[in-house]
Nucleic acid binder design. Structure first.
Length: 525
DNA sequence: CGTTTTTGACCCGCGC
DNA sequence: GCGCGGGTCAAAAACG
């Protein structure tokens, strides 16, 4: 027996093991979910029926490869190194019954592990539901409190302000300078699924006042008539938040699992790299759009901004990151919970709830953006001046210079509303436009740019480093479970593969890509 | 030949 | 009112 080969076969990432375990549990719920020790039927048939023959299973080192045969029947057994470690020795090779007993014992052990994993999943699910409920309650409470605070602070000037400002992240006074030092620190606990309710709620929390024209609005007008008709339509009560993703990639666009069609490209002021505009083409009338721009400072830095909500089901590949972005946007939209800080206070980075599995640590939010904006920082690089970015919230992951190819649907739930792209602003722009803004220290001083590592490592690190690991685990596992073996529906352009918590990398079909690489995302101020 | 990309023109909001 | 900049449209070109 080739021990090396066995080790290769058995050294399976825990994520794969989880996936297979989950998959097995799904296929054999009677054996893997139930607490009963009854083994899976196939194992029972295989081992207890005395059918261990040379054709189906052999421990002869010189004969058929038992590992391969086993893997054909039950790869999960191979996923555990101990299986191979307990393969019969030379002297036991002829003793089939002892091997059977050995394997039966191992099988029982694996079943026990299976039950434990299932139990953990159940536990995580319960925690998830509980957190979601708590989140909603907390947000309602905080929104009310924020409203009261606003009423107190701006009672004199906002007497006639509509209740739309309930959770408005932006200054209520339209005369506020375009760039304010005012920041908002979020300290919310948001669960991924809570995002749905949050997003819905966001429709009532974000005021459209003074917001630039929204692409979504355009979409409405496009589908219902000429743009001019827009004036006749009541403007949506609230504008969309935006979610930006900072990622390091040489690819022109990160792969997020959706199909995108490029509909425009513009040279943005202050950035030699053009900004590309994409529209989701997975559904005829999907209003989701995104912008992709490369940073002028670091051409490997891509900033992708999503806006709008998918009105169609998302493929599993696209759903993997949906919760992350949704939760981030929800958090952003829950700005009513924020506490405003003075201009000199730059420690606005806060712990983001672990319910954002792919962005686990830091977050900053500025209250002055025309669009509520949140940035998921997947670069792991001590972001320069994102802090100086007015109007931007930022999530920062542990170092992840990896190619940002990952399933990244903005909204996993078509019902989610109120998410959007972020307005990022080139640091150069910021400094030029707002020279008074002092430089901010790196959000994560300990973080340094690292050599190329895979995104899975980054994500894994993010999850592992998360104090609330269970939530992250739940998200990862749910992703694994829901993800088909092949490329589900992915489609975006990135050429890089992504592995998350054991998810095998999937190569997504090419998607529209900007002719030029543009990485940084510019935020509209 | 259908789809996607390119790219100049156009629209719109905003500031002066 | 004008200019600027961001965003979108749409015809032509490119692509598979």
């Amino acid at each position: 027996m080739d021990s090396k080969r066995v080790r290769e076969l058995t050294l399976m990432p825990s994520g794969d093991f989880l996936r297979q375990a989950s998959s097995m549990a799904d296929r054999h719920p009677e054996s893997s979910i139930d607490a009963s020790p009854k083994p899976p039927l196939r194992e029972v048939d295989f081992f207890s029926a005395g059918s261990v023959s040379r054709n189906t299973f052999t421990f002869d080192d010189e004969g058929d490869d038992p590992e391969i045969k086993m893997s054909n029947r039950r790869s999960i057994a191979l996923s555990n190194p101990r299986v191979s470690d307990q393969y019969p020795t030379e002297g036991e090779a002829k003793s089939g019954m002892s091997k059977v007993r050995l394997l039966e014992a191992e099988l029982e052990r694996l079943q026990e592990e299976n039950r434990k994993v299932r139990s953990m999943l159940d536990h995580v699910s319960r925690n998830h539901s509980s957190l979601q409920t708590q989140l909603l309650l907390a947000m309602q409470k905080q929104a009310h409190q924020a409203h009261l605070r606003d009423q107190e602070v701006k009672n004199s000037s906002c007497l006639n302000k509509p209740a739309q400002h309930f959770m408005d992240l932006r200054p209520m006074d339209g005369n506020d300078p375009p760039v304010s030092d005012e920041k908002v620190t979020l300290d919310a606990s948001v669960s991924p699924t809570g995002m749905e309710a949050l997003s819905k709620g966001s429709n009532h929390c974000i005021t459209p006042r003074k917001f630039p024209r929204s692409p979504i609005d355009d979409h409405v007008s496009e589908t219902s008539g000429p743009r001019k008709a827009k004036d006749d339509q009541p403007e949506p009560p609230f504008r969309k938040a935006r979610v930006s993703v900072r990622a390091r990639s040489e690819a022109p666009m990160i792969s997020d699992g959706c199909h995108w069609r490029k509909y425009g490209q513009k040279m943005a002021k202050g950035n030699p790299c053009p900004r590309a505009y994409y529209r989701c083409t997975m559904a005829a009338a999907c209003p989701v759009r995104k912008q992709v721009q490369r940073s002028p400072e670091d051409r490997n830095m891509l900033l992708t901004t999503y806006e709008g909500n998918h009105n169609h089901p998302l493929p599993p590949a696209a759903a993997a990151m949906a919760n992350t972005t949704s939760a981030a946007a929800a958090m952003l939209l829950s700005g009513s919970t924020a506490t405003k800080e003075g201009p000199a206070s730059y420690n606005s980075a806060v712990q983001f709830p672990s319910s954002i599995p792919f962005a686990s640590t830091m977050a900053t939010l500025s209250a002055t953006a025309p669009f509520p904006t949140i940035t998921l920082d997947l670069t792991g690089t001590p972001r320069s001046p994102v802090h100086t970015l007015p109007r931007a919230a930022t999530l920062q992951l542990p170092p992840s210079p990896s190619p940002p190819t990952f399933p990244f649907p903005l909204h996993g739930n078509p019902h989610l509303l109120g998410l959007g792209l972020g307005h990022a602003k080139y640091s150069a722009d910021i400094s030029s436009h707002h020279p008074k803004l002092p430089s901010l220290p790196s959000m994560l001083p300990g973080q340094q740019r690292q050599p190329q590592v895979t995104l899975i490592e980054t994500v894994t690190a993010a999850i592992a480093s998360d104090p609330n690991f269970t939530a992250a685990l739940a998200a990862a596992v749910s992703t694994v479970i829901s993800a088909p073996q092949g490329d589900p529906g992915g489609s975006n352009g990135g050429n890089e593969n992504l592995s998350i918590a054991g998810i095998k990398p999937t190569v997504l079909p090419g998607s529209p890509q900007p002719p030029q690489s543009c990485t940084a995302f510019s935020t509209n101020l």
